[in-house]
Simulated assay, not measured.
Amino acid sequence: MWAARSKLLFAVGLGIPLLVFLQMSMYLLYKMFGWDMPFNLLWLCNHWMSRMGWTWVGHVLVGLAIITFAGTGWLLVHRLMKTRAAMKRLWRIEDKGWSRSLQTKYEHVGQTGFIVVAEKAPLAFTIGLWRPRIVLSTGLLNMLDNDEEEAVVYHELHHLWHRDPLKTTLLTVFASMMPYLPVLKHVAKHYGIVREILADNEAIRRTGNVAGIGSALLKLIRACPESWRVRDMSVQSSFADVSVNVRISRLLDPEQEVALTLPRFAVLVSATAILMLSVLFVWSIG
Rank of each mutant, 00 (worst) to 15 (best):
A3H: 06
A4G: 04
R5L: 10
L8T: 04
A11S: 15
A11W: 11
L14A: 13
P17D: 02
L19T: 13
F21V: 07
F21Q: 07
Q23L: 10
M24W: 09
M26V: 06
L28M: 12
Y30W: 13
K31G: 00
M32K: 10
F33C: 05
F33M: 11
W35M: 12
W35Q: 11
F39W: 15
L41A: 13
C45W: 13
M49D: 08
V57H: 03
V57C: 02
G58C: 09
H59A: 14
V60M: 12
I67W: 10
T68M: 13
T72P: 06
T72L: 10
L76C: 02
H78R: 15
M81S: 08
R89I: 03
W91F: 04
E94I: 09
W98R: 15
S99T: 15
R100I: 04
S101I: 03
L102A: 11
E107R: 14
H108S: 14
V109Q: 06
G110Q: 08
Q111N: 11
V116N: 02
E119A: 08
E119N: 09
F125C: 06
G128T: 04
L129M: 12
R131T: 12
P132R: 02
V135A: 05
N142Q: 15
N142P: 00
M143C: 03
D145C: 03
V152E: 10
V153E: 04
E156P: 02
H162V: 01
L166Y: 08
A175V: 04
A175P: 01
A175S: 13
M178Q: 13
P179Y: 02
L184G: 06
L184N: 06
A188P: 08
H190G: 00
H190D: 07
L198W: 00
N201D: 08
A203M: 01
I204H: 00
R205T: 07
R206P: 05
T207D: 07
S215T: 14
A216I: 03
A216N: 04
K219E: 11
L220Y: 07
Q236Y: 04
D241P: 00
D241R: 06
V246F: 10
I248R: 09
L252Y: 10
P254M: 08
P254V: 05
E255C: 00
Q256M: 14
A259M: 08
L262Q: 01
P263M: 04
A266H: 10
I274Q: 02
M276Q: 07
M276Y: 09
L277N: 04
L280P: 01
L280T: 05
F281H: 02
W283R: 06
S284G: 15
S284A: 15
